[in-house]
Design a protein around this nucleic acid. Sequence first.
DNA 1: CGGGACTTTGACACCTCTCAACTCTCGTGG
DNA 2: CCACGAGAGTTGAGAGGTGTCAAAGTCCCG
Lengths: 226, 226
Amino acid sequence: MYVTVPNEFFPQAGKPIYRQRQSDKQSRVKERALITGQTLFREGDRADYVYEVVSGVMRLTRVLENGQRQVISFGYPGDVIGFPRNGRYHTECDVISAGTVKMYRRDALHSCATDVALHKFLTESALEEIALMQDHFLMLGRKTAKEKLASFLIALMNRAGTPLGQYKKIKLPMSRSDIADFLGLTTETVSRTVSEFRHKNIIALDDAHTVIVLEENELLKIAYSN
Amino acid sequence: MYVTVPNEFFPQAGKPIYRQRQSDKQSRVKERALITGQTLFREGDRADYVYEVVSGVMRLTRVLENGQRQVISFGYPGDVIGFPRNGRYHTECDVISAGTVKMYRRDALHSCATDVALHKFLTESALEEIALMQDHFLMLGRKTAKEKLASFLIALMNRAGTPLGQYKKIKLPMSRSDIADFLGLTTETVSRTVSEFRHKNIIALDDAHTVIVLEENELLKIAYSN
DNA sequence: CGGGACTTTGACACCTCTCAACTCTCGTGG
DNA sequence: CCACGAGAGTTGAGAGGTGTCAAAGTCCCG
C-alpha cells in the first residue's frame, strides 16, 4: 500500500486496480500462514518466491547502517510483495498482522515458459508498483506532516476501512514509528498530528490503533487541496 | 537516474547494473532523435512505446492540479523510461539535453510472444526500477538538504561524471528548480546548499551548470555518514 | 543594449526535529 | 492485590533547518 494521489485517470486514492487473476489452476498455488512478528524475508536473502498477500498486513522496510529506517510500503491483501533485484530481496518483510500469503516461484516472474498467465500477472503487478511508487514520491517530497497523515488515513480508509454507522473505521496494525518511517516523519510528529485531528473532531480514536473518520471531507481537504 | 544508497550488495551509488542486451536483431529497433525542450510524452498519453535513453538527458515529472511538481527521475543513457500503467503514461517526459532514444513497442513489455529477449530486458528493467525507487524513498524521507544534494552529486558523478585532471566534472543539464523538485526541496535551498559546498571548497563551479568535485570524500561523508 | 529567465543571497517565520518528561497499558512477580 | 518495569504513545519546550517572500545579480539571446 502506498499513499497515492487521485487524478483524472485514477480518481480514487488508495484503491488498487483490480488485477484479473484467473483462479489458480487446480489451486496448485502454495499458501503460507504467518504470525504477527514473523519475518518473511530479509534484505539480501535469495528471492525464491514472490508473494501475494491474501490476508493480514506486512511491513516492508529498508535500513541503513546508521539505523535510519524507511518503511517502503505496507502489504495489504491484494498486494504483491518481494520483487527481487538480481535474485535477492532488497527489503525486509515483517508481519505486523497475522495472515496468509500465496507463494509464487520467482522464475514465473522472469520467464513465461511455465505459466504465461501467472507471469503476466506478476509483471503487470510490477508495472503497477512503479506507478504507485511514483505517486508516493510526491507525498514524501512535497507534503507537510498534516497532509501526509491525512493522505495516509484516506489511503488506508479506501483500502481497508470498515463501515461503522455513518462513519468509517480504520484499524492501524502498525506502530506510530512505523507510520513515521513510512511518511518520513518522527513518531512525535505523527502523534501530535493525530492529536490535532482528534481535537478538531476530524477523527476519533477508539484506542491508539483504531481510528474513526468523522469528517472525511475535512481529511480530503487537508490531504489534497493546496 | 535515482539517488540510491550504497550497501553491501550494491556498493556503488548511482552505478546502474549493466543489463545485458543482445544487439538488436539486424538493428530493427527504431530510434528517435530529440531536441532540448521537446516533450516525448505526457501524463495520460496512450503508451505505444517504452523508451531506452541512448544519449541526452530526459526529465520525468508528475504534476498536481495545484502546481506542485515532483521530478520523478532523470533519464540518462541506459535508463528505460515510460513504463505504462494501464496502457498509459503516468508522468510527463521532457528532453533537457538533446539526444536519442530507442523505441520499443509496448506489447514487448506485456507479452513474450514476439521477442523473448526484449521482453525479458524490459521486465527486468522494471524490477530494477522498483529497487532503485525504494532507495530513493529513503533519500526523500530521511535525508537533510545537505545530505540530499551530496547524494545527488555523487549519483550524477558516478553516472555521468567526466575526469578533469585529478577531479571529476559533472554537467547539470537540469535547472535548480528541477533539482529541487527531484530532491523535495526549494530552489533557494538547493542554491544555498550548492553555495555552502562551494565556500567549503568541496566543489567548484565552472558555471551554474558545471560542477567540479574537489573533495569527493567530503561529499561521501555528508551523503552517507550519519 | 535590453529583456527575461534563471540563480543567488538575505531576512524572517514557522514547521518539524530533538530532548525530555509523563501517561497508559500490560505482564510479571512479590 | 499491589508494585514494578518495559514499551508504546502523548505532550511540552526549545532549537534549528527549510520554506517564504523579496531583491539583487547573472547569463543568454534576441
